[in-house]
Design a binder for these strands. Sequence first.
DNA 1: AAACGATAGTTGACTTTGTCCACTAATCTC
DNA 2: GAGATTAGTGGACAAAGTCAACTATCGTTT
Lengths: 163, 163
Amino acid sequence: MASTSTPQPRGPEPERSEVALGRLGDFVGFRLRRVQNQLSRKFAAANADLGLRSGLFSSLAIVAANPGISQSELSGAVGLDKSVTVTIIDELEKYGWAERRRSAEDRRRHALYVTPEGDRQLDRLFARMEEVEGAVLHQLSDAEHQMLNDVLDRMYDAVVREL
Amino acid sequence: MASTSTPQPRGPEPERSEVALGRLGDFVGFRLRRVQNQLSRKFAAANADLGLRSGLFSSLAIVAANPGISQSELSGAVGLDKSVTVTIIDELEKYGWAERRRSAEDRRRHALYVTPEGDRQLDRLFARMEEVEGAVLHQLSDAEHQMLNDVLDRMYDAVVREL
DNA sequence: AAACGATAGTTGACTTTGTCCACTAATCTC
DNA sequence: GAGATTAGTGGACAAAGTCAACTATCGTTT
């Protein structure tokens, strides 16, 4: 991947203006989206040099945490379609960060594993992510941070359970 | 940090395939994305009958809260490109929910206004959004809800300020 | 063991969404 | 008035997700 030009994720700059939010400000979903948009924008900018496809990082992280996971399970965990997962694993293999191994018990399955090089890359990515989040989390006390994680987990459980 | 990452020795026991998050669980951005994805999915499903384009709802809400706002200002507020805003306003006008009026002072600008019908539609949409969020927020105490909003606002201010 | 349906992975067509660039009309500056 | 700037528009393009079909394996039924 030496010759291709790196795609630069740039977008409209976050505007600090005096626009009223109105009733929109009463909803958590709006605040959530706002923060999350900016965070992912920052993370993409920090990793623009690598030209990472979105979803690649989390997929790699999930595989690392679940050695031998199948592509279907990975799809479910990351929330992507199976077909998208295929192309992500393709890229991961191309980079040499992960590999497919046919499962011995069920030869339909591809058991996924992270390579040592993939582990190193993951370390780098996690470090960058920590850096990006650090500036934001610095605003929060430890208790608030903990509360936030806890609340978000409960919200996630609630919203997932009712589907 | 919350209680999520649990190293699982995945044995050949497919009781309930719980996927480990690993280090990913240490990041707020991940949790944020997770919850927000599910929430917006639910909201889209609740409004599938209307075939709403994404961003249309928030645009309408912003116009309602800022009568006479220009398209550029709206773009900045919602975080979309100007060209995208154009097509959104096109749709809003087609539905009869909003309208462009040429500004008298600056004839380049389109001052945007929500129609009475648009206001009624907005009421319906806000009601649905409340319904969608209600199931999730029900998990939270009032104090937690308040703290969540406060924390998210501070995070947003922090991430916006450093650009 | 042959046949059936179900599952894992793959591929390709299609839609949606966002980004970028060029063009116009109007405004502002000098 | 000339030239630069801004608001809005249109179109080309790329990234990303959805969907349906297809192959190969597996499990179960008969």
